[in-house]
Simulated assay, not measured.
Amino acid sequence: MTGSKNLENWLHEKVGPAYDALKADPARAVTPDQVRYTLAELLAEAEAAGVYPLPPEQREWVDAPAVGRELTPFDPAETLTSAEAISTFLAEAEATADPAYIEHAQAVAARAKAMHGIE
Rank of each mutant, 00 (worst) to 15 (best):
M1V: 13
M1W: 10
M1Y: 10
M1D: 11
S4A: 10
N6R: 11
N6E: 05
E8A: 15
E13Y: 11
E13Q: 13
K14G: 04
V15N: 07
V15D: 10
V15S: 08
G16C: 08
P17C: 12
A18P: 00
A18E: 00
Y19K: 15
Y19P: 03
Y19H: 14
A21K: 11
L22Y: 12
L22T: 10
K23R: 15
K23Y: 11
K23D: 13
A24F: 08
A24V: 09
D25V: 13
D25F: 07
D25G: 06
A27F: 02
A27D: 14
R28L: 15
A29N: 02
A29C: 03
V30Y: 03
V30K: 10
T31N: 03
T31G: 04
D33G: 14
D33T: 14
Q34G: 09
Q34R: 15
Q34D: 15
V35K: 12
R36F: 06
Y37A: 07
Y37Q: 14
T38E: 07
L39F: 08
A40R: 14
A40V: 15
E41P: 04
L42M: 15
L42T: 13
L43R: 02
L43C: 07
A44H: 02
E45W: 04
E47D: 10
E47I: 01
E47G: 08
A48I: 04
A48T: 09
A49L: 12
G50T: 10
G50Q: 08
V51M: 07
V51P: 00
Y52P: 02
P53T: 08
P53Q: 08
L54Q: 07
L54P: 00
L54A: 06
P56G: 01
P56K: 00
P56V: 00
E57Q: 07
E57I: 05
E57H: 11
R59H: 03
E60H: 03
W61F: 09
V62F: 05
D63M: 08
A64E: 06
A64T: 04
P65D: 14
A66C: 02
V67T: 14
G68E: 05
G68K: 03
R69F: 11
E70R: 05
L71R: 10
T72Y: 10
P73D: 09
P73G: 12
F74S: 02
D75Y: 03
E78T: 12
T79P: 01
T79G: 05
T79F: 12
L80Q: 01
T81M: 12
S82Q: 04
I86H: 07
I86F: 06
I86V: 15
T88V: 12
L90W: 06
A91K: 09
E92A: 04
E92H: 02
E92Q: 10
E92I: 00
A95Y: 02
A95E: 07
T96G: 10
A97R: 15
P99Y: 10
P99N: 11
A100T: 14
A100G: 06
A100P: 01
I102C: 15
I102D: 14
E103L: 09
E103Y: 02
A105E: 00
A105C: 03
Q106P: 08
Q106F: 09
A107L: 09
A109T: 01
A110L: 13
A110P: 02
A110R: 15
R111E: 14
A112Q: 04
A112G: 06
A112R: 00
A114S: 11
A114W: 04
A114H: 06
G117Q: 08
E119A: 15
E119H: 12
